[in-house]
Amino acid sequence: MISVQHVTTSYGRTVVVDDVSLTIADGGVTALVGPNGAGKSTLLKVIARLLQADAGVVTVADLDVARTAPEVLARRLAVLAQDTQVPVRLTVRDLVTFGRFPHTRGRPTAEDHALVEEAMAHLDITDLADRYLDEISGGQRQRAFIAMVFAQDTDHLLLDEPLNNLDMRHGAQLMQIVRDAADRRGTSIVLVVHDINAASVFADHIIALKDGRVVTQGPPQEVMVEDVLESVFDVPVRVVEVDGYRHAIHLSGRLARPRTG
């Protein structure tokens, strides 16, 4: 379980996450949605202890993230940050192997290497294993970082815009991996997505953030409602149902066109 209680975070004087409280149950996929600058990444960073909150408490698996030893937390929580970069020149396999570090402290066994190869296979990057990170495409790099996170094999996962840069097939594959981790392994996964329809289809729970506050949350049927989405994103939308799933179509493109006829 991930619990966020009265968390406030600011950059300088600007409050970016404003007294947010949330509970994320074990074993499900939670999608964090909201406009650019809503505070999604900031909230995720606070949960991931990459940023210190001004106030409030975050616990992951009952461990207070601000007080728990980093090596203990790293075995329970893995994180994909938005725009991750590493200053070292690494091959894909080297990077993914680092995912095992919290468990091995630098002495990977045959079993660890097998897990690394498996994570790369799932992300479809086995062919790239010996290539350097600065010599592959953005989407391939994104998949390498996701493979590292999965190789960490934790029961809590935070993914900031994991679908970034991924083509349709690899996006679908990733969603399947995420779903599977939640369903079969009981992993709790929180991810930030901009594709609200993806969230609607494969998340169990959607949390909408705006101006640093939670404006609405619930199962997809409750959040995927025209008024709700319009108030979150400030664009006119229409919600349609396809095969029992709700999809939002936003109409701003239509507004931008001069009316004809």
């Binding site: 990977p108 790369m120 296979a121 062919d127 399947q176």
Partner: peptide, 24 residues
């Protein structure tokens, strides 16, 4: 906690045992 990640077209079961030696 460590169940298999199985799903998704498993792109050819890979060089798990070859890798560690080549490294280093």
């Amino acid at each position: 906690m460590r169940t298999e990640l199985a799903v998704v077209p498993t792109a050819r079961t890979s060089s798990a045992n070859r890798a560690p030696e080549r490294r280093g």
